[in-house]
């Protein structure tokens, strides 16, 4: 077995790539993104730090993040993973379908946060549960259309399966009344969606600007 096929190597790349897609994160967040135990995540982070690929920033808003070397290593390994699985055409096609849905997701997040009252765009105070339910219904409808895309991605590269689980979980929580799971917290639908967007860009080597 070559080093790149070993399970340890796979977990390490998952952790490295989670930081590439999510930015500075704590261990719990990397664990949620990868589906690995927190203790495994911590152990991988320590090894990655020894390689000079990740670093820890202190302060209230700090966490684990990639170094320049880590970013380069991620790009190389993720590109290798994509091409050795022969998945580039499938992921490219899924990316294009995802990008058609992306403006709809941003519209919905905006509608969740702002709504016109007497013609004035106003912060949604979530006092009108009928309006919130209408927006959440549209989220559910959009979710039904992104699920097949997640399925295609997971078929091409298994690590993409986590997004389907995480998106479904965020929507489920929001529908049960945890409203911060729509667009507010790090586990919110908007955040997970944005990580998926970033993951597709990173995987295909597309630059944002």
């Amino acid at each position: 077995m070559s080093p790149s096929e070993s399970p340890q190597y796979g977990d390490r790349l998952l952790v490295l790539h989670a930081l590439r897609c999510a930015g500075y994160s704590g261990i719990a967040r990397v664990s949620a993104a990868t589906g690995l135990d927190e203790s495994d995540v911590e152990s991988e982070l320590i090894d990655l730090a020894l390689d000079g690929h990740v670093t820890r920033l202190g302060g209230e808003f700090g966490g684990w993040g990639l170094t320049e070397a880590g970013r380069a290593a991620d790009a190389e390994r993720i590109g290798h993973e994509l091409d050795s699985a022969g998945a580039r055409p499938a992921v490219t096609a899924s990316y294009e379908r995802f990008m058609v849905l992306n403006p709809e997701l941003l519209d919905l997040c905006t509608a969740w946060q702002l709504r016109p009252v007497d013609g004035v765009t106003t912060i949604n105070d979530h006092g009108d549960s009928a309006y919130d339910a209408r927006v959440l219904d549209r989220f559910t409808e959009l979710h039904d259309r992104v699920v097949p895309i997640c399925g295609e991605l997971a078929a091409a590269l298994p690590r993409f399966a986590r997004y389907r689980t995480r998106l479904a979980d965020a929507l489920d929580r929001a529908r049960k009344g945890e409203l911060e799971y729509v667009a507010d917290g790090i586990g919110s639908y908007h955040t997970v969606w944005a990580e998926l967007h970033e993951d597709l860009l990173a995987t295909l080597g597309i630059s944002r600007w």
């Binding site: 500075y24 994160s25 966490g63 944002r208």
Partner: peptide, 14 residues
């Protein structure tokens, strides 16, 4: 920022 991505979440929070 030119535009933001998930990488900027911690910066946005700070």
């Amino acid at each position: 920022r030119p535009e933001t991505s998930p990488h900027d979440m911690a910066g946005l929070a700070a």
